[in-house]
Design a binder for these strands. Structure first.
Length: 460
RNA sequence: GGAAAGGUGGCAGAGUGGUCGAAUGCGCCGGACUCGAAAUUCGGUAUAGCGGUCUCCGCUAUCGUGGGUUCAAAUCCCACCCUUUCCGCCA
């Protein structure tokens, strides 16, 4: 969420910076809502002040045993007027809030302006892709004989699910364990175990909601009664029959909320970052560095047909996440550090990769600056995203009301950063493809061998 | 799932319709005392929004959340959420 003061004072400049990332801010709508808000708020507050003083007078008069009918007559009807004004103010503020919740973050000045992936800037390339003296296979062909089973995954759950058996399941676990150990032992992150199901508020805090509901999986509790109230059902029916689908969805969603429906996390950035929601942390506690190995669940709506083969794009994948919660002055240092923390994993695994600085048009909703790490996949003859590290500045912190006490003792918004360190599934893909041998076996990277019981290669 | 208790400031905890944003204690900040510290003592100490004559002042909101009653709600009523304890079930 952007600072509403920035929008009030500098609307044109903010709009121009948003334009750079392809977001058209509705300036007229904002101005109109702000105008309405201003009048509604001053009028409401005047009425409230009038009510408060009159009520106080009544209290004083009564304690003295005086007659209060004159003052009572004065405030007659004030209640109705006040109620109407308060309702109008609440409406306008809700509208402003929802407008604000849907505006993406401002890009940092060092971010290249661009429209798409094509405008991203390669920062550096590390490692040399291996030369193969045999015909290389992609990870599905390498992995299938070793226990990668897409058919069973599909049988159990559907497309974009995978079952792993035997050595390859162990390799997957070894990768996650290794990454977690490096992040905790070498980079100073605190290991966390977090819930995989979270409430709505948590997802609003990190920015997945309200805008990206369709990217998430949502559950509902079966223990509660699923009955609608009679009038609710009638209203829902009316909304549906009149073809007002927005209204229908709103009503269903509000009903759903009351059923205790929780969402599956799309990344543990959500849970780790939300640990500081509604907190005022001590400045000495900064930076807070957290890591977790969790599954991530994504509906992948709108990506039909993309990466349908293999385990590049799954509904469920594991990830070791890094989150830093820092003083605003050090967030850009922290961003560079975190890129290094993710790179160290790739270096240790001896996987060739490149670091890419995302352009304004390719960044995520909450990011002010993002680096992607892309790993070399020989079968695709290209680099593919394996990590994404972002500085969200105060964008999430403002939604979360996550603050610290500054030198003046005043609460001030923190900066939040998150990054993958790394995506485990895609790392497995990279290992399978880069370490494949002519005989169909896969060599185990040296650093993983202790996690594999000393095994140097896996074979069918 | 059943029963009970409870959710108040950074923390502990009082307040059960009226000058209550809220006693008191702890913590924190500043002063006094002291060579210095501790102890003692005095004063200060929430957040957000709006407005102004804008290093200051005024107004408004906030006592789990949402609604209701009332001229007036931390306090009364309703619904929900959460926490704790006991019982049941359970990995």
């Amino acid at each position: 969420m952007l600072d509403i003061q920035a929008l009030r004072n500098d609307l044109d400049q903010v709009a121009a910076r948003l334009q750079a990332r392809g977001y058209a801010l509705d300036i007229a709508a904002f101005n109109r809502l702000e105008q309405e808000r201003k009048t509604a708020q001053t009028q409401t507050q005047d009425l409230q002040a009038k009510r408060n003083t009159s009520s106080k007078q009544i209290g004083i008069a009564k304690s003295k045993g005086e007659d209060v009918s004159a003052i009572l007559a004065e405030v007659a009807g004030l209640g109705e007027q006040l109620k109407a004004n308060e309702a109008r103010l609440a409406d306008v503020q809700a509208e402003l809030q929802s407008l604000l919740l849907n505006v993406p973050n401002l890009p940092h000045s060092s971010v290249p302006v661009g429209k798409s992936e094509a405008d991203n800037v390669e920062v550096r390339k590390v490692g040399t892709p291996r030369r193969f003296d045999f015909e290389i296979k992609d990870h599905t062909d390498v992995g299938t004989p070793l226990g990668l089973d897409f058919d069973t995954g599909a049988k159990l759950s559907g497309a974009r699910f995978t079952l792993m058996r035997g050595q390859i399941a162990r390799l997957h676990r070894a990768l996650a364990q290794y990454m977690l150990d490096v992040q905790t032992e070498q980079h100073g992150y605190t290991e966390c175990y977090t819930p995989y199901l979270v409430n709505r508020e948590t997802l609003v805090g990190t920015g997945q909601l309200p805008k990206f509901e369709e990217d998430l999986f949502r559950t509902k509790s079966l223990n509660t009664s699923l009955d609608f109230e009679d009038n609710e059902l009638r209203d829902l029916q009316t909304a549906f029959q009149s073809g007002d689908f927005d209204d229908t969805l709103t009503r269903m969603s509000s009903w759903f909320d009351r059923q205790g429906g929780l969402y599956l996390i799309p990344t543990s950035e959500v849970t780790l970052t939300n640990t500081v929601r509604d907190e005022i942390v001590a400045a000495e506690a900064l930076p807070i560095k957290l890591t977790a190995h969790t599954p991530c669940f994504r509906s992948e709506a709108g990506s039909y047909g993309r990466d349908t083969k293999g385990m590049i794009r799954q509904h469920q994948f594991d990830k070791v996440e890094m989150v830093q919660i820092v003083h605003p002055e050090s967030s850009y240092d922290a961003l560079e550090q975190m890129v290094g923390h993710a790179e160290n994993i790739l270096k240790a695994l001896e996987l060739p990769y490149r670091v890419v600085l995302l352009c304004t048009g390719d960044m995520g909703f909450g990011a002010a600056k993002t680096y992607d790490l892309e790993v070399w996949l020989p079968a695709q003859d290209t680099y593919r995203e394996i990590s994404s590290i972002s500085n969200c500045e105060a964008f999430q912190a403002r939604r979360l009301q996550a603050r610290f006490r500054n030198a003046q003792g005043k609460p001030e918004l923190l900066h939040t950063l998150n990054g993958s360190g790394l995506a485990v599934g895609r790392t497995l893909v990279a290992v399978l493809e880069n370490y494949q041998q002519a005989d169909g076996s896969v060599t185990i990277p040296t650093v993983l061998q202790p996690y594999m019981g000393g095994l140097q290669a896996i074979r069918a």
